[in-house]
Design a protein around this nucleic acid. Structure first.
Lengths: 353, 353
DNA sequence: GGCAGTTCTTTTAACGTTAATATCCTGGAG
DNA sequence: CTCCAGGATATTAACGTTAAAAGAACTGCC
């Protein structure tokens, strides 16, 4: 049955030429059949596709990249996972990002860089020189981000996870509405009857942090609640713990604590643990990110889940658009986080066995 | 100062030919200067390297890949993060794997596959056809792993995170000694005076699980301790919780529980929480993996840290060796986990503020 | 019948690199 | 003075693909 011999198969790889011979046409026609279907006669195309199928031909991406100056590669730089960080969304994020990329006909390649901002830019430039990367995905952009300037100056399509904080309308981004998240969390604990709702967040330099703080402020003001209890600390369990102790020692102690991250919220839980207080029953706690940990601690931590899957999909979709269509079209996508209510913010029911 | 004009720089990319013109030699000499330094005269080489430096030349990987049938790409397939899984080492692992790869002159490219075993193999084959991937890294191999057979039949270098459980001497792997880990954890709680040490692990099909169970068995037998209390459940918080309740309701209840994973251990903590018992003070608990969560819960969870950085480095080192040297040399690396002692396995001291 | 206009297909050349081969040159032996 | 060895460098060709241009076959129209 098999078309015995005559198959050159010199290296195990099937090439255009072999398909062409099999179908009795030129290599270019095969190329056209695959990339510009309307340039070949329907029946020729059918014959070619049959040959492609039969021989199991897959176009060689290196050759394509060389010829087209386009590698179907999208680059992403991981940051080193800070040990104290509970928000281990990176794992999921990377997974969907890659899945979406593959679905759209790309592959994800990882960057590595040391030496901060400058090192990262150098790494991007080197990568661009060496391989014709089609697009970049950035995470965590900030005000006056040099990487943005660099990528733009090189004319490479890119999209960021995280909006442009300096009102850069040109930049394509996908982000999650942090403000809406903390507002929802605050509203939730207020609905449980809490009136002394503290907030533990990040230093004011963090744009993301200010966004989340604003949501808590919104909710408190809407209800004319006290907004005295707030802390701005670097994201860590220990800082969350200490801030919680301070707020519980205040003249009018907090009965609920809204946090800018799960890490901070877990610090609060530790503080309660140290004081013999029960999360939920005695003090309501909410976190942010729905890190795996949030579901695993006891009691479970109420938190805000970022639609990370959708973020990944939208990012790929965005760069895909940038590459295909008019690169002048800015794309902004703002997604809503989802409040996941667990026992840490609910009174009552201790033993749910 | 700058060598004005005459620079073609047609596309912003510097090519071998441009460097060659600048240095007044042929393209081949530039290639040699970079790849076979002993084939060019020392001073010519110096001149060429100066030109390379000056023009900021970086070899085009697509062209190289096409010519050499080797892309400097190492492929790795992520598995979707199971939501219930606390062992989020993937993030760290990927980071070091990539860092090591870049250090060794490679880049990491991510695979995506659906459809289980078969789908994964198909994805590998497609990737190989399309891009001359240099090597693969596998995670979580098992007995009679089809992927291993496939990769071997194609003659592609690969290394696995996780030893070959079917005694496949040919396969290169890097692994962590699970047995030594649980033995150390068991010895640790025994040293605290515990004599009823239960074990919560995975179903017997899991080779990794049996390995970890063996460590607990070893330690118990060495001390002539009871080994009646054991559970074999699918890895989840809920299963850990239920198993813990069973063991605490037993005729001779467990006073210490050694677990095969942090997820299970967190389930145990929840069970204790439900019973009003204190981890550490009332029942000692140990987990496995030192997931981020372990450090964040209160009290902290005693667990075993896998030297994930070293695993990543060794894996890259291994495939690098396979590609360079004699591919017949099997490479096996077994690393020791490190016991991280936290309060969950220690009596006393409740409030450490 | 000849000629312009379609539609389909093939030919040519190029992307940037490197193995293999060819050429040049220098110095030393005969 | 010729000839050869051997090192240094240059030339050729190829990796697999595709844009651009050229060619072929067929249509309809004056």
């Amino acid at each position: 049955m098999q078309p015995t011999s005559r198959g050159p198969a010199p290296h195990g790889h099937v090439t255009l030429v072999q398909v062409a011979q099999r179908a009795g046409v030129s290599a270019q026609s095969v190329s056209n059949a695959l990339n510009n279907p309307d340039r070949v006669a329907p029946e020729t195309r059918k014959r070619i596709l049959a040959a492609v199928e039969e021989l199991g031909y897959e176009p060689n991406l290196s050759a394509r990249a060389l010829r087209n100056r386009s590698s179907s590669l999208i680059a992403f730089k991981m940051r080193p996972a800070r040990p104290d960080k509970a928000s281990m969304l990176m794992d999921d994020f990377l997974y969907v990002l890659n899945a979406s990329a593959v679905d759209a006909g790309y592959h994800l390649i990882l960057c590595h860089a040391e030496g901060g901002q400058a090192g990262e830019i150098k790494a991007y430039r080197d990568l661009l020189k060496k391989t014709s990367i089609d697009a970049f995905i950035l995470a965590e952009t900030h005000r006056n981000d040099d990487r943005v300037a660099a990528l733009r100056s090189w004319g490479v399509p890119f999209a960021a996870f995280g909006r442009s904080w300096d009102g850069d309308e040109e930049m394509a981004w996908v982000d999650v509405d942090g403000r809406a998240g903390t507002r929802a969390a605050t509203a939730h604990v207020a609905a449980q009857g809490h009136t002394q709702i503290g907030y533990i967040g990040w230093p004011a330099e963090s744009e993301l942090g200010e966004d989340r703080r604003a949501g808590w402020l919104d909710a408190c003001r809407e209800r004319s609640l006290d907004t005295d209890l707030q802390a701005a600390v670097v994201d860590s369990l220990e800082n969350g713990r200490q801030a919680a102790h301070r707020m519980l020692d205040a003249a009018r102690p907090a009965t609920a604590l809204v946090c800018a991250s799960d890490t901070l919220a877990l610090g609060v839980m530790r503080a309660l643990h140290e004081r013999g207080l029960r999360p939920g029953a005695d003090v309501a706690i909410t976190g942010y990110d729905d890190s795996p940990t949030a579901a695993l601690v006891s009691p479970g931590l109420t938190t805000l889940r970022q639609p990370i899957d959708e973020v990944g999909r939208q990012l790929i979709h965005t760069v895909d658009n940038l590459m295909a269509g008019d690169p002048r079209t800015p794309q902004h996508v703002l997604l809503e986080p989802e409040l996941i209510v667990r026992d840490s913010s609910l009174p009552g029911r201790r033993d749910t066995r």
